[in-house]
Design a protein around this nucleic acid. Structure first.
Lengths: 178, 178
DNA sequence: AAAAATATTGAGCATTCTGCCCTATTCAGG
DNA sequence: CCTGAATAGGGCAGAATGCTCAATATTTTT
């Protein structure tokens, strides 16, 4: 579930902090303060606020599955009987190789992200998914490579440019002008 | 591109470290050492080794796009003229809302992950993608919700159980027995 | 099996960082 | 203008870090 605690909007300082952390995730508060010409107390307060407002997702996302021995990533579209959706999700959550699942609009019910050791492993996992009661059909696509690695820094930089000195991302970024 | 520097396999201690970091990403080395009954130096050496071997992906992945003002996530299957794939990817990388793109097997050429502010924004981004020379067709699916939030901890825990006291994940995890 | 290489341990030191407190100033909203 | 929130800068004690070192344990190689 998406967090429901986004209680404040991010201003330029927040964005700069996030950007700096993307550059060096182990930055100390002191270093961040120097880099951004802020007081250390401010960095501390801002970071606490970002934590509280769920600006940071889980550390899991930084763990490279390849390093764990799971070099393959696949996306499985899962077509289900709607009335059993909740149970199915609970069952899928018991499969460790399923690292994420979205409920989707349109003709796909679930988009399931899977990591696996090899093609046979993928086939096995697919079978496990299909064995769940209420799962009608799956369509598997193997990711051959991450051509654009996950990044938000272009967004951070653009949004920071747009909001100006002390503005915030309240509402839609596109509504904010410099 | 996937990192090509996975030069060593993770043993149980590495996995436990990663697991502990998933629980508390701001853990100090001292705290980790106490928690795992290790010497602080060992934690330090292990963390350095994990860093060097690309066990950690970018911090970007921890930044919640919702907090940035991008509450919607969508997956766009992009069908392209193969010979222009490289140029297309370069062009797609110029679009900040595209946060990730996989080259896929099968009938889908690219799976593009997009964050956006609303449905109109998504429609606009889709148009931008379609405007790239060599892009034939797109199919957009809107993620309605993250039913299983991204997690690797079940994998970490299972692999740690499997490898025993000092084993490692060299090769396929399924080949390792306790 | 023995030797060599590597990893771990625990101790230590100087430096830096953190959590927290405090007061003064600035900023933003009514 | 007033008020509350945020920022700044200073401070303190304790904790953490980066690094060194020698001894020990473990793993790998011969």
């Amino acid at each position: 579930m998406l967090p429901s605690s986004i209680m404040h909007s991010l201003d330029k300082v927040d964005l700069q902090l996030l950007r700096a952390l993307c550059t060096d995730p182990r930055s100390t508060f002191v270093a961040l303060a120097q880099q951004l010409h802020l007081s250390r107390n401010t960095v501390q307060a801002r970071m606490a606020r970002l934590e509280e407002s769920n600006a940071f997702l889980s550390f899991d996302r930084r763990v490279n599955p390849v390093a764990l021995g799971y070099p393959l990533t696949a996306f499985i579209e899962v077509h289900v009987q709607q009335k059993r959706l909740t149970q199915i999700v609970a069952e899928l959550a018991q499969i460790p190789e399923i690292v994420q699942a979205y409920g989707m609009s349109g003709s796909t019910d679930l988009l399931v992200r899977v990591v696996c050791t090899d093609a046979d492993d993928l086939f096995r996992i697919d079978g496990t998914i299909l064995a769940c009661e209420g799962v009608d059909r799956t369509e598997t696509s193997l990711a051959m490579g991450e051509l654009i690695p996950y990044r938000v820094t272009p967004l951070l930089e653009r949004t920071a440019r747009r909001v100006g000195p002390s503005g915030s991302t309240g509402g839609s970024p596109d509504e904010v002008t410099t």
